[in-house]
Nucleic acid binder design. Structure first.
Length: 515
RNA sequence: GCUCCUGUGGUGUAGUCCGGCUAAGCAUACUGCCCUCUCAAGGCAGUGAUCCCGGGUUCAAAUCCCGGCGGGAGCACCA
């Protein structure tokens, strides 16, 4: 052995090649992958994935991650994607959210092969529940909630668990009329002494009196998430199911339910949650902000909802690239918003009209201008057309650009030519100094006093800083822009030169995307 | 507290299952140069990781084993 180490690596290599060529052949190394990692047990043409949101709110970046992963895998294997509204809790769900989620997916460009609702299958789910009751794998429990959780903690079974099949059947029937909400639940016979608390006889059905957005009050016995997902994934033919990491402990239950019913088991996998720092997703924290007026609505550009991202100028293509770049991992991550921005910038750059914009205007009077019509290209490299601006001797510059100016110094008014400063006071005066491009002369943008437009730009910042609401999270600035702004379509992305990308919201408002 | 998951440069990841090809690839961020009538995009180059720590196995470990530590999650008649 030590002899081996005395010879050089190269010699070792050739030794091996001579004596054991199969060693090298076996190791045809794995190339760097492009997209998501391959799926286990995935057969081309047979993969079925599903995206199962609960219609209880507006879709956000977390939904986007899940949906994109689901779709990518379905595509990767020529399979199918099912959009399934997981609507098993009438107390939380609303009709408008079904629609909002579809709109969001549409915008993202996620195409599904089938839409359905868990609530479509409620009768079938009852059937499966009854089957479990009849096989003794489930029982109806009428203990008080506190008792149940106490028993769970103490790993003790309750008296309901020893009921016989007839008694359980009887109770099951009563759940549909006699029992009131909260008086009875059906529980899966798991294992009260399991270390996984999820397995301590979890809930399969409970009574809920809320009005279901689709079914009204036709039903009041509703399956729990765990039961519904297991059954639905099975009957939908799902082969690979993905969910976020916090569900991981529920896998044991998922498979146990399927086993008890002797049903085929999809492969369940989990990935880390996607959330941006300082951009909460939960309704629990957003709702009060909206109610107090600190945030206008769920499409406020500071939020990570799809609607907000869209208003802010983030493109769906960028979101997809971004999500894919995150990979399929379980590591807890601090999502890199700058990567999203970078993808977005590259996409948006070539479509964005470049406009001049002036912040904190400072007046400039130019003498000797040779022309009164200036033609400016809308993009430095792409052919996005040109625009004409008529000017007189009065201009505005950003005061940032005028700070260092002294008499005699030269600047170049972009698209016009060089000027030489003559006087500096509350306003500047200067003299036209030719059109020759000189590298050292700073180039600044301007607007003409003749025809500028006032515009408000909203600049979204982190909503929260260390769990505290950031009172300065939405900066608003008043600026002057060229009149050409008015001709651009609402919703279009523009770049204010040397400032950054913004999305036109209306004639008087633009939202800052990123720089 | 118990249980589970997780830990690669500032950040996100690839590689980890099947130890050597890589003293670790890519992206982003940052810096510089080129290009440019933008501080954008594009091109090029650079800074930056003893792969959480400590042991062990091995000729060889980010990769396998053991023990720590850090972070997250679950412990609901919500999903």
């Amino acid at each position: 052995m030590s002899d081996v180490n005395k010879i050089s690596l190269q010699q070792q290599q050739s030794e091996i090649e001579r004596n054991f060529p199969e060693l090298l052949a076996a190791k045809e190394k794995i190339e760097e992958r492009a997209g998501l990692p391959p799926l286990e047990d995935a057969e081309n043409g047979k993969v079925v994935t599903r995206f199962p949101p609960e219609p209880n709110g507006y879709p956000h970046i977390g939904h986007a991650k899940a949906a994109i992963i689901d779709e990518e895998y379905a595509r990767m294997y020529d399979g199918k994607l099912i959009l399934r509204f997981d609507d098993t809790n009438p107390e939380n769900e609303r009709l408008e959210y079904y629609a909002a989620i579809k709109v969001g997916l549409d915008w993202l460009g996620v195409k599904y092969d089938k839409v359905k609702n868990t609530s479509d299958d409620i009768e079938l789910i009852y059937q499966k529940g009854l089957e479990l009751i009849n096989s003794g794998a489930a029982y109806v429990c009428t203990c008080k909630q506190e008792v149940i959780s106490k028993n769970r903690r103490e790993m003790k079974s309750c008296k309901c668990s020893i009921l016989d099949q007839n008694q359980n059947n009887d109770r099951w029937k009563k759940m549909f009329d006699k029992f009131k909400a909260g008086e009875a639940i059906v529980r899966f016979r798991g294992n009260m002494s399991s270390e996984n608390t999820v397995m301590r006889d979890p809930v399969l059905f409970r009574i809920l009196d809320g009005k279901h957005p689709l079914l009204g009050d036709r039903y009041r016995v509703w399956p729990s998430y765990d039961f519904a997902v297991a059954i639905e994934d099975n009957i939908d033919g799902v082969t690979h199911a993905f969910r976020t990491k916090e569900y991981e402990l529920r896998n044991e239950l998922y498979y146990a339910i399927l086993d008890a019913l002797k049903l085929r088991k999809p492969k369940m996998m989990e990935f880390s949650r996607l959330e941006f720092k300082g951009m909460p997703v939960s309704k629990r924290v957003l709702k009060p902000l909206i109610e107090s007026g600190k945030v206008s609505w769920y499409d406020d550009p500071r939020l990570p909802t799809l609607e907000a991202l869209k208003r802010r100028g983030i493109t769906p293509e960028a979101i997809r690239k971004f999500v894919l770049s995150l990979g399929f991992t379980k590591a807890d991550t601090l999502a890199p918003f700058d990567v999203l921005e970078s993808f977005n910038r590259k996409i948006v750059d070539e479509q964005s009209t470049r406009l001049f914009m002036v912040k904190n205007p400072k007046k400039l009077v130019v003498t000797g201008l040779p022309t009164s019509t200036i033609t400016i290209p809308n993009h430095p490299t792409k052919d996005l057309g040109k625009r004409n601006v008529t000017v007189d001797e009065n201009f505005y510059l950003s005061s940032d650009d005028t700070k260092d100016l002294k008499p005699e110094s030269k600047i170049r008014l972009m698209g016009i030519g060089n000027v030489q400063i003559k006087t500096v006071s509350d306003h500047l005066t200067c003299q036209y100094a030719g059109d020759e491009l000189v590298e050292e002369i700073p180039k600044v943008q301007w607007v003409s006093q003749k025809n500028f437009q006032k515009l408000k730009i909203q600049i979204p910042k982190a909503l929260f800083i260390d769990d505290n609401f950031n009172e300065d999270s939405l900066e608003e600035i008043e600026v002057y822009v060229e009149p050409y702004y008015l001709e651009l379509k609402e919703g279009s992305e523009i770049q204010f030169v040397r400032f950054g990308y913004c999305r036109k919201e209306s004639a008087s408002l633009a939202i800052f995307t990123h720089r």
